[in-house]
Design a protein around this nucleic acid. Structure first.
Length: 876
RNA sequence: GCCGCGGUGGCGGAAUUGGUAUACGCGUACGACUCAAAAUCGUAUUCCCUCAAGGAAUGUGGGUUCGAUUCCCACCCGCGGCACCA
């Protein structure tokens, strides 16, 4: 058995006749598609105007990273559906902006450049050229006038500008304020910190927490190491509450909202402080703070645990009798990788601190203090109270180390379903002094209030979300526009570059190799690094770290509306955002309907993959909210609606990958079957938001469908009167296709078109008028063939037409079919007048031959009539 | 462990304010065209039953209902997210 997919088997099934033929009657997609792609390009189809009488629709797809591998079929899932949607919207009379650009900074390009000794700028340009060619060959109607590239200095000028805004703003008393250059106390939103960073020894890069999965580098799978390093950070945690709460104002798939909520991981609980005492009476004024979500179990505390990194240990020092042992344990813990300390560790190791104890503030009990590495420094206060009776981990720890277990909440019998669910899950307090008899929920409030009254605790909110490590030690990213002016020359400290020195361009280099020391390749370019301080004019050095590739993509949806000014200089002291406030207001406001409801506004629809929900989507929401706070964007949220598409697996049902040999190259499918077939197939492949496996036979099926559509132009007759059956189906198809497109139910869009085409074949003719509507419905998913047929049969330009509206006349029927059931089983069907009364239905239902036969000799218990639908006769 | 989503023919999948289950596509079988094949067209195709009649079936077992793929309870399986998060 091997995972390799046998490609010869697929090839055998590909038709050898799917080649251009001399016969002009044949469906020759090669000629047709080239023709229309050129026409669309020439006519600038897809280009949108800023401001228009028409209603606007801003439709965003994730801009691609221009890799060397080119466009893959996954891109088609997103771009194909969105292109179809936009084509419909244009026909419906919308001013549609459907832009595209290049998210071109990033490690693969840098690695490629190192390996092949070419400049990343050159590699990027080459890859973009290839992507453009591919996109052109698929007939996507992007607005090329708005093309952007994150690696253009004109673009990253503003990425740097936004970074400097983060640097220049901070939080004081819970409010966002401008921070003076010499203010070293107010926490800035962009700040430097000595951080334990996730170092990937293979990529030679520090990763954000979000980029570490199971202790491994998300990109290459190498186990990461913890290192201490000075890093630029963005204070995303200051926005945690709003990032959770404002999800209520946006229309995202529920699972996306859930993922973001889980990721931010907000929990409310209680902080409680214990005084620390030593048996020798020499310990004074020391305390440990704990965080718990279960303060209702507080009286069950039989021990407390601090993390190995907790500062209290050093403070207590040799007041702890076995301090040597503790230090040893701390050292061992430090050597463990993240993986060993979390995933793999089942055994709860720990050491008791002898000679010291903690005092429970609520009842004065003396509590033993332990150090254990199952407690993490990075969450809460880095210390937990141990309540073994009501926490699985505490229980395991207590069992292993023979610590007493004390039950303080009686779990109620689960059968008493009448009780409130919260009480069933928790219980009623016992052995808890004055709090006995309270429910867990009540006790949480009362106990915290009590702690507050004695100054030992209060309610607190905690988040799993950490601040965003924003530095990368790489070449191919935006330089961080900060200068370090250190003594002896000046000593101005960190100095942001003034606006007129932006953009700070990447220097041209010969060597992009990162170093093992973790320094950026830029650090080696002395000419560039050494500069003058913008403040004092003395010698200073540039920051050599660059930004992560999430930076440029955090505001690109704004850039599309600002392209006019990306190329031209903006007056010093101003910025492109305020300069183009009108454009931003026009494109980002989600429309009147949204404005009147509780909406955060933003891009009308944002379509992309599920893999970006906790990184890109969260980061860009954070940036947007910050930009809103400093008054440069008009909406609270960047994206009013977010949808996501599933991934396409290889023909063997596994993730497409070179090593499995199951990668489908869109260029090959286009060459063999054409862009329309490929696009329609990808829409037809399965439910839009689920994963689906590629299937060559399915491609064939769609190809056959288009060939039949092509052939059926012969059935179009100018003077024929369509039978009612066809008109009914046509109008049902108009309704169905419109609804399905609106809801991104792409697979049924295609099947409904197939159904209609099948009926046309069965009837053998179709009027020009009906045919025209069908072709319009087809045009979003197969635009080239639709244009060609429209031109040759209707003699007009499809893109100038209007999207068809259903004629209600054909959706209401004279005759309807009524189902007759006996005991819930279908026994007969009758065709009746649609104005039929319930009484008549009952009479007719009881009277048919078949039913009479079944009813003979049986007693009718009752008869149920569903108006205009069915009759159910219950017998015996 | 917690949270979320799903399980329908030989296969991918339609259809849920409870009312004709299996649309559409693939595959398969037979037939037409052809010297022949491919392509194309026609017919059939959930299963059981020779046909008809009939019966059974939407992961499993219960329940509510005249009627359940749809609602409720329990369970099994698969997928995704979070996870020594206190």
């Amino acid at each position: 058995m091997t995972d390799k997919y046998n490609f010869h088997e697929i090839e055998k099934k590909w038709p050898s006749s799917a080649k251009a033929t001399d016969d002009k009657q044949e469906y020759d997609f090669r000629v047709i598609e080239k023709k229309w792609q050129d026409i669309w390009q020439k006519n600038k189809y897809g280009q949108s105007a800023d401001f228009d009488d028409k209603p606007k629709h801003y439709h965003l797809v994730e801009f691609p990273y221009p890799s060397g591998a080119g466009l893959h079929v996954g891109h088609l899932m997103g771009y194909g559906a969105s292109d179809a949607y936009c084509r419909m919207k244009r026909l419906q009379g919308y001013n549609v902006m459907f832009p595209i650009g290049w998210d071109a900074f990033g490690l693969p390009t840098e690695n490629y450049a190192i390996k092949n000794k070419i400049k990343p700028q050159k590699a990027t340009a080459d890859n973009i050229a290839n992507f453009k060619k591919q996109i052109h060959s698929l007939g996507f109607s992007f607005d090329w006038k708005r093309e952007i590239n994150t690696t253009d200095p004109e673009y990253y000028h503003w990425t740097q500008w936004i970074f400097l805004q983060f640097y220049k703003h901070g939080i004081k008393n819970g409010k966002l304020i401008e921070v003076a250059d010499d203010d070293y106390h107010t926490p800035r939103l962009a700040f430097r910190a000595e951080m334990p960073v996730n170092w990937c020894p293979s990529c030679k890069i520090n990763l954000a927490n979000e980029e570490v999965v199971d202790g491994k580098c998300e990109r290459c799978g190498t186990e990461t190491e913890k290192r201490m390093q000075k890093q630029w950070m963005l204070r995303i945690t200051a926005y945690a509450d709003r990032l959770v709460d404002d999800l209520e104002t946006v229309d995202y798939l529920d699972k996306i909202k859930t993922q973001q909520i889980n990721w931010i991981g907000r929990s409310t609980g209680t902080n409680v402080r214990f005084e620390v005492k030593g048996f020798s009476n020499t310990v004074h004024d020391e305390e440990i703070e704990f965080y718990t979500t279960r303060i209702d179990t507080f009286f069950g505390t039989t021990f407390v645990v601090v993390s190995p990194e907790h500062p209290i240990l050093e403070k207590l020092g040799y007041h702890i009798q076995n301090y040597h042992e503790i230090k040893e344990y701390v050292e061992v813990a430090a050597k463990k990788t993240e993986l060993e300390r979390t995933e793999l560790q089942k055994d709860k190791t720990g050491v008791k601190c002898y000679g010291v104890y903690a005092v429970n503030p609520i009842n004065g009990e003396h509590i033993e203090i332990w150090v254990a590495d199952y407690v993490l420094t990075s969450y809460g206060t880095g210390a937990v109270i141990g309540v073994p009776a009501h926490d699985q981990r505490d229980y395991e720890f207590a069992k292993k180390h023979h610590i007493p277990i004390k039950q303080v909440v009686s779990i109620l019998n689960h059968k008493s379903e009448i009780l409130d669910k919260a009480i069933v899950d928790y219980g009623i307090l016992i052995n808890s002094g004055e709090f006995d008899g309270l429910s867990s929920d009540e006790a949480k409030i009362k106990i915290t209030e009590k702690l507050k009254s004695i100054g030992a605790g209060e309610f607190t909110t905690n988040y799993k979300l950490r601040d965003w490590i924003f530095s990368r030690q790489h070449y191919w990213g935006e330089p961080i526009p900060i200068v370090h002016c250190d003594p002896p020359t000046g000593g101005c400290g960190r100095v942001p570059l003034p606006d007129d020195q932006l953009p700070l361009e990447l220097p041209v280099v010969d060597n992009y190799e990162p170093s093992d020391t973790g320094e950026s390749p830029l650090a080696k370019i002395t000419d560039w690094v050494v500069t003058t301080c913008p403040k004092c004019g003395g010698r200073a050095e540039r920051e050599t770290d660059t930004m992560p590739n999430w930076a440029g993509s955090s505001w690109y949806y704004l850039a599309y509306t600002l392209v006019k000014s990306l190329k031209s200089k903006v007056k010093s002291g101003s910025n492109i955002f305020t300069k183009h406030a009108k454009e931003l207001e026009y494109w980002l406001d989600a429309g009147d309907a949204a404005r009147s409801s509780k909406s955060g506004g933003g891009v009308d629809i944002y379509n992309g993959g599920m893999e970006h929900t906790t990184l890109h989507l969260l980061y860009s929401r954070f940036w947007h909210k910050f930009l809103y706070d400093i008054g440069v964007v008009p909406t609270l949220e960047p994206y009013a609606k977010r949808i996501a598409h599933g991934i396409i697996l290889g023909p063997n049902g596994r993730k497409m990958s070179k090593s499995f040999g199951n990668v489908i190259n869109p260029d090959e499918i286009v060459a063999e079957f054409g862009a329309d077939t490929l696009r329609a197939y990808v829409m037809f492949i399965g439910p839009y938001d689920q994963e689906s496996a590629w299937n060559m036979a399915g491609v064939q099926g769609v190809y056959r469908f288009l060939k039949r559509v092509w052939r059926n132009q012969e059935l179009v007759k100018e003077n024929v009167v369509d039978p009612t059956e066809l008109l009914v189906k046509l109008n049902q198809t108009i309704t169905g296709v419109t609804n399905d497109l609106e809801n991104f139910q792409m697979n049924t869009v295609v099947s409904k078109l197939m159904e209609f085409n099948n009926l046309v074949e069965k009837i053998g003719s179709i009027s020009t008028k009906s045919y025209e509507k069908f072709i319009l419905l087809l045009s979003p998913v197969a635009p080239h063939i639709a244009e060609e047929l429209y031109e040759s049969v209707i003699h007009s330009d499809l893109t100038m037409q209007k999207w068809p509206e259903p004629d209600k006349k054909y959706l209401i029927f004279d005759k309807i079919e009524v189902v007759i059931q006996v005991n819930g089983k279908v026994r007969d069907k009758i065709s009746v007048d649609s104005a039929i009364s319930d009484e008549e239905m009952k009479k007719l239902g009881l009277g048919t031959e078949k039913i009479k036969k079944i009813l003979a000799g049986n007693e009718i218990v009752k008869t149920i009539v569903v108006p205009k639908k069915l009759v159910n006769i219950v017998i015996k």
